[in-house]
């Protein structure tokens, strides 16, 4: 009988450890999400740029080279806006802050809130691409028929590898139905 009890104790010890491992791995599955984002942030893989405005540092401009920055604006399928950059590309000096406007127009009959998600290509350039001002840092609301110029101020880091001559900055505007609903509820309440 004592043998059996010993066996039971030994078993429940192992079971506890294994259950703990199971819970840990479930947590690890979720931890992969922030890990993935941190990994992409640090390495700049996946073309992810920071979603925070960068500090403006005293200008240290590399006057010996040009980098071409191309601009793309696109919309998710369920987004009834028009959206394009004012210029399709510009040449910048690494280290120098530059400004570009995107133009968005709401062509639907409703007021809509959108989110712009940026992406930089090639992926390796993302690390060297900082924005000091961007419409993508906050949600943007456009009333029906409203047109708006949305500025981006960006700096291409002067440490950007020599082999990268062209950087493409792309924004995709997504409809944010939850936010749109919230805003309209607020405005209803205000009336």
């Amino acid at each position: 009988m004592t043998d059996q009890n010993q066996q039971k104790n030994a078993n429940s010890k192992v079971v506890r450890k294994l259950l703990l491992a199971t819970v840990f791995m479930f947590g690890f599955g979720y931890a992969l999400v922030p890990l993935y984002n941190i990994f992409c942030d640090i390495t700049g893989l996946n073309g992810k740029t920071s979603d925070q405005a960068a500090e403006v540092k005293p200008a240290d401009i590399d006057n010996n080279r040009w980098v071409t920055v191309e601009f793309i604006g696109s919309l998710n399928d369920n987004m009834p806006w028009k959206f394009r950059p004012a210029v399709s590309k510009m040449k910048v000096r690494p280290g120098e802050p530059s400004r570009v406007n995107y133009i968005a127009k709401n062509v639907s009959s409703n007021s809509i809130v959108g989110n712009a998600v940026p992406s930089v290509s090639p992926g390796q350039a993302a690390k060297y691409f900082t924005k000091t001002e961007c419409f993508c840092f906050t949600q943007q609301e456009l009333k029906s028929g409203e047109e708006k110029e949305m500025p981006v101020v960006f700096i291409v880091d002067k440490n950007i590898p020599k082999r990268i001559n062209t950087v493409t900055l792309s924004y995709t505007f997504f409809n944010s139905p939850a936010a749109t609903k919230e805003k309209s509820n607020v405005s209803m309440a205000n009336k």
């Binding site: 294994l18 491992a21 199971t22 791995m25 479930f26 599955g29 992969l32 999400v33």
Partner: peptide
């Protein structure tokens, strides 16, 4: 199995 089935459970929960 113990290492990865919970990750599958996590991904379907997400």
């Amino acid at each position: 199995l113990i290492a990865v089935m919970p990750v599958l459970a996590g991904v379907v929960t997400m």
